[in-house]
């Protein structure tokens, strides 16, 4: 029984059809890397899964929650799927702790004390226990992204969507964020990540999806996709002949 079922999903922006019928089933605990050129629709697909973009056709369901464009259904779905963004998107007016506490108290109505304990636990999990009272602009990019991961984890999602989570980071900060993601994968979290970190995808992922012009062009375990690319487009993307 797949955890995330994506069936014939279509999305267009004006005349531009960005997703041309995507089918993808994700089993619990799978770690999926979505790779492809910019404009291939990989980020759009990720954003469709938790309803940040409204799909024009097809269906998406996560653990039985259908994606429907009203606030009640969206909320139910978003409680199951967390999302991490390229630009971190921490709330700048709140401390790291405040960022992790807010949605617990507001959305889940968790009592303040429990939410704070959860926040401390999650910040510790990403290695930032001592930054509880720091504001986002006092943290490095890598630290901010780790707070963002803690913030998503505090909602106890069953899957996480990672949209190029290291692309906005200086090279020396990439490793600390990837280490956290790697740990999540090892703990069995279901992950869908759009990434340019090919080595990371090869090491950590159970399956790799290569997207090209709005379609899933090639899909398979990383050893196949990276070592034995079948299509010329994937060969060109990977730079192998």
């Amino acid at each position: 029984m797949p955890l995330i079922e994506i069936t014939d999903v279509r999305k267009r922006f004006g005349d531009n059809e960005v997703l041309k019928g995507i089918d993808l089933d994700v089993k619990p605990g799978e770690v999926i890397a979505i790779i492809g050129k910019s404009g291939s629709g990989k980020s759009t697909l990720l954003r469709c899964i938790n309803g940040l973009e409204i799909i024009d056709g097809g269906s998406i369901s996560v653990a039985g929650s259908q994606l429907l464009p009203d606030e009640v259904h969206l909320k139910a779905l978003r409680l199951k799927v967390g999302m991490i963004f390229q630009q971190f998107n921490l709330f700048p007016h709140l401390t790291a702790g405040g960022n992790v506490i807010l949605s617990q108290t507001v959305v889940k109505k968790t009592p303040k004390r429990e939410a704070e304990a959860m926040a401390r636990k999650m910040l510790e999990r990403v290695g930032l226990a001592e930054k509880f009272d720091a504001y986002p602009d006092e943290l490095s990019g890598g630290q901010q992204q780790r707070v963002a991961i803690a913030r998503a984890l505090a909602m106890e999602p069953i899957a996480l969507l990672c949209d190029e989570v290291t692309s906005a980071l200086d090279p020396e900060l990439v490793a600390e964020v990837l280490a956290v993601v790697r740990e999540l994968a090892a703990e069995g979290m279901t992950l869908l990540m759009v990434t340019h970190e090919m080595k990371f995808a090869r090491d950590v992922c159970s399956r790799v999806v290569f997207m090209h012009q709005g379609r899933v062009h090639e899909i398979g375990p990383p050893e196949d996709v990276f070592a034995k690319p079948k299509t010329p487009e994937l060969k060109q993307f990977l730079g192998v002949q």
């Binding site: 967390g82 999302m83 909602m155």
Partner: peptide, 11 residues
């Protein structure tokens, strides 16, 4: 991104 982050947290 502030709208998107808060939406993705279920608000």
């Amino acid at each position: 991104g502030q709208w998107e982050a808060s939406a993705s947290l279920g608000m």
